[in-house]
Each structure stands twice: as C-alpha cells, then as structure tokens.
Design a protein around this nucleic acid. Structure first.
Length: 129
DNA sequence: GCCATGACGTTCC
DNA sequence: GGGAACGCCATGG
C-alpha cells in the first residue's frame, strides 16, 4: 500500500466524533491537494473491519457521495446521526458547523485564494469561431 | 505506456 | 444555487 493511502487513513482517524471532513480537505491534509478522487479510492478499498471512520468524509457540498440506494450510504447517514451530526432537509450537512478542521470551512477566506491558485489554465474552450 | 474510470473539486454560465 | 466542462491523482485493463 502506498504511504499516501496510509496518510489518508491517518488523517481520517483524526476527525473528531460528531464532525465531518471533505475529500478535498482530507487530500490536502494528507499532502496531495487536488487528489480528492484518490481519497475516494482509498476509502473504497477499505474493509468493513477497518478502524477508519470513513463515514465522517463527505463531499464539498456536505452530501454523501454514494448513491442513495447504496448500502454504505444508509450506514453512513445513520452513523453520523448517531454522532450528533444534523442533516438539513436536503440531506446535506452544514460544513460551517460540523466541518473539520473548522478553519478549512471558514466560509470567509479559502475559496478565493484557492481559486486564484488553480487559475493555471486560461480555459480556452471557446474556440467556436 | 496509453486509455478509461472513479465515494471529487473548482470554474463558468 | 444548479448544471456542464475540465482538471486532478491513483488504479486497472
């Protein structure tokens, strides 16, 4: 197993009970910003008997990424509810409240900063003429 | 090594 | 706030 996976699991294990983190944040804390999809891969590779609280990982929208009918999705929601995480009517979690680490969801700063940082490609898709 | 896929994220409309 | 498009990283064929 790659050390990167190990770091991902270690980060997830650091998520406090009753709090949630997003794939992107986990990837960043694990040392690979932008590798959110890889975090999903690492989680899918987990066994049910692992000691990794995978259910505390949501996507940036505060929603469970799994298909609603997926067994794990039901389990995930139940586990979070049991830990005190509240779901909004839309089935979303307020990351500003339950997000961990809190500074990652400050809702004030990071968005703009990261946006500027990822502005590497001028996106030349409009070659229509 | 190239191509396709995926529990994702960000930007633009 | 939602949908479409592109990028990202790792895995599998």
């Amino acid at each position: 197993m790659n050390p990167f996976y190990h770091r991902i699991y270690r980060v997830i294990r650091h998520i406090p009970k009753g709090r949630v983190a997003t794939y992107g944040v986990v990837a960043r804390l694990a040392g690979r910003p932008g590798a959110a999809r890889t975090v999903g891969w690492a989680l899918s590779a987990l066994g049910e008997d692992s000691d990794v609280p995978w259910w505390r990982v949501l996507n940036v929208s505060g929603r469970i990424s799994l298909a609603a009918q997926h067994h794990s999705a039901v389990v995930q929601r139940a586990l979070l509810l049991r830990e005190g995480v509240k779901f909004a009517p839309g089935g979303t979690v307020n990351l500003a409240v339950f997000g961990w680490p809190a500074e990652a969801y400050d809702t004030v700063a990071p968005a703009r900063t990261r946006a500027a940082a990822s502005r590497r490609s001028p996106r030349l898709k409009d070659s229509r003429t």
